[in-house]
Amino acid sequence: MTQQFNDSPLTLAGQTFHSRLLVGTGKYKDMQETGEAIAASGAEIVTFAVRRTNLGQDAEGPNLLDVVPPSRYTLLPNTAGCYTAKDAVRTCRLARELLDGHKLVKLEVLGDETTLYPNVVETLKAAETLLADGFDVMVYTSDDPIVARELEAMGCCAIMPLGSLIGSGHGIQNPHNVRLIVEQSSVPVLVDAGIGTASDAAMAMELGCDGVLLNSAIAHAREPLRMARAMQLAVQAGRDAFLAGRMPRRQSAEPSSPFAGRINS
């Protein structure tokens, strides 16, 4: 019989979730693969981008919201591609209209096209405007604990430091900073960006993060559906390992078998 272990759900802006894996919808081969991979990941929160509608072509083509329907998933509009606070705020307001008053958004304001590193100055400005306008803001930021603390104090509902550069797959480059942010934060902390494979996602959770947001690691895997399942399991494994508490590290070996009773010639 499988023992049931207790865990509290992930709570974001008053809503509770059982999956701690959040996924993006970019870079898939087609809409069918997008929908299938997201289903295989077990994610309940799915992020998407807002872009100008293609005019005069393909008006009847498949729509993202057909494969990730708002009735099944909590949709998380993001401001990917925005380089100024102004554009990020406009994008969130468009997303709110698109989703009939939906308030939960993922804010990201980027610094340059080479690094896609968060521009924290613009991010802070945008967060202030969005919070005043009634949005629930999950914020992509650097792994700087002081900036993270500021964003939390402003009222952001989740702090999402990068593990490494967006789309790089370099994993968590500064686990010490992520741990500092986790330890100081009263709101959920999610690693967003940089996850390359399942062990990276598990590491985020072992550091005590409340969740992981990823996209390319699944979409660019050779078998996206299999990687989606791997990520689901990795997030669960990392979460359990964190809650279980790891053994202490030792400088020397300690045998797992008893010393007494050995045959001895």
Binding site: G26, F48, A49, R52, L55, L65, N78, A80, L213, L214
Partner: peptide
């Protein structure tokens, strides 16, 4: 005038 929709993104 801007008309936007949802597309795949992370």
């Amino acid at each position: 005038v801007e008309i936007v929709h949802a597309i795949g993104g992370g």
